[in-house]
Design a protein around this nucleic acid. Sequence first.
DNA 1: TTAGGCTACGTTACCGGTAAACCTGACGCA
DNA 2: TGCGTCAGGTTTACCGGTAACGTAGCCTAA
Lengths: 331, 331
Amino acid sequence: MKANLEDIAKAAGVSKMTVSRVLRGGTGFSDDTRDRVVKVAERLGYVPNKLAAAFGSYQASTLVGMCVPRLTSGLFAHVLDGVDRALSRLGYQLMIGANNHSTAEEEAWVRQIASWRPAGLILSGRNHSTATVDLLRQVAVPVVEIWDLTTSPIDMSVGFSHYDCGVEMGQFLLRRGRRRAGYVGALARADVMGQARLEGFQAVLAQAGAPLVDREVLLDMPGFYAGYYGLETLLARTPDLDVVYFHNDDMAVGGLAYAQAKGIRVPEDLGIAGWGGMEAASILPKRLTTTVVPTTAIGKAAAEALVARLKGEAGQEVTVVPTRLVPGETG
Amino acid sequence: MKANLEDIAKAAGVSKMTVSRVLRGGTGFSDDTRDRVVKVAERLGYVPNKLAAAFGSYQASTLVGMCVPRLTSGLFAHVLDGVDRALSRLGYQLMIGANNHSTAEEEAWVRQIASWRPAGLILSGRNHSTATVDLLRQVAVPVVEIWDLTTSPIDMSVGFSHYDCGVEMGQFLLRRGRRRAGYVGALARADVMGQARLEGFQAVLAQAGAPLVDREVLLDMPGFYAGYYGLETLLARTPDLDVVYFHNDDMAVGGLAYAQAKGIRVPEDLGIAGWGGMEAASILPKRLTTTVVPTTAIGKAAAEALVARLKGEAGQEVTVVPTRLVPGETG
DNA sequence: TTAGGCTACGTTACCGGTAAACCTGACGCA
DNA sequence: TGCGTCAGGTTTACCGGTAACGTAGCCTAA
């Protein structure tokens, strides 16, 4: 990289500081000087050095770190997209990482990112190691916890209540007359959020006098096949269920495929409900009963909360982005 | 952030430079000194400052920039994952961006990233604005172009030939006796890679004396609905096609849904072929005829090529990661 | 007429690391 | 005894910006 502020300054016959002011769009120079500087900068192909800028003054970092459970998750891909669109428009750069549902990996990531002195961080989930929390306190930048809402965030929180999702789905299925519910889940690693949905679901069923009859939780990735075989196992053990709530839509679709393969009529013989709002679920002949999560909106809201805080505005401490239960034709 | 090297140095009774060497795992200090320094660093909760490190010496940057067409693309999510796994294991950090299939947005992104003095860059596609190419030359770091193979990369290239994908699918469908082929595509923005597949497809059909009969290209996102309505439009105009090649699997699945809705038997009345290897296609009752792209492998290979170059090794200039035609039951 | 304020700059000091050169005492060896 | 070598350090000089402060020249109002 050849040209720096000094080079431009010399070529334009001004001081380095004036060049800096011009290129950052400040004030305190004449139109004539500005034109000269800009022209020289362009001629020399000047590429600013944010490393130096961010290093020299703690205000100037435009780096935002974001950590998601998995980069291949369709839901989080949309959250990421929402964040990126909002941030890149404002001149921020996004540094990403995946924690694979592990607080230890998250801690390692935060440690790495912290050494870049980011302007702010976005984490997913409310569960962090104590070392992570200490570290976050030490870097002392705005932090947004997304996805799972927490009423006592480290700093800010954007999301919804997984527990309430379970409650809402439970209530809905009860209203549809279901009395013998099962659950099929999976945990490749401890996915506490799915657990919260199950708890909400169970609580409302128990309260209505129709408690959860059986559940099958596989130690596998929560995908199509886990749903398929999970339902198979569950029904082999407890055949007389009238509805099954799945960890997510991918698994619910797998369950649906199993039902179809075995001639089980949905929703007549068995109701099936998912969670998440998988795009591809639209390819099914029947609309899946599920809870749609406004992923992009969460990303956007998180980015906006962060930026508000960076601009010195108060910044909403807790932002609720409501999910939407879609009745569908399978529940 | 409180503690820096100086603070540790004072507390441990050594010089800053010795602390730097200890913490980076260098040589030139006694075991006793190392233990003392490490202990003090831990006690003070030292968080290294990569900004200063990368700024002070051009070797030390561990930042890698990666630009994909869209962050919500399932295929690219896996590429991203492959890159991230390979890089984070080696201590690199990933900065991402989306170009929305626009070379202008890519240029803006490269301009931003360049100012962070990254160790290397990963771009998708072979199509870049001349300003981008100039800029890349100026930052003078390893660059990997992924996805669409190019024989004359800016620096390195990892991917496969989209043209050959089209050729292979054309040959396959000809072997299955198809003689009247159509094509349904979409371009929200100019997706030149889909275009390359179409060209390969057309070329091999024409050569076999069974040229492409009709095509429908929608100005829309290449998703389920575009496939559904694209096929409807195409068949309304040219009903007697015996096979349709779709821009990608999402669209093919939409086409399949249309066929099912209209009672068109697949593959008897109409063959359907996609491209990409969409995970969710596995939920279909029939396996989709498609070309599976080894997304994670591409990401991994790109990261490895980059790291090899960063370590001073030669680094493969062009790495071919072969795609795989899956016959399926719809073609 | 002069204090005060404004514009349009220039100067200086620093951010926290790292490379490279330099130092020093102990030891081996001719 | 003198000299080279090596381990185990220290010193110095940057990297390229930005904040804070300084200042010359000009205008204005009391």
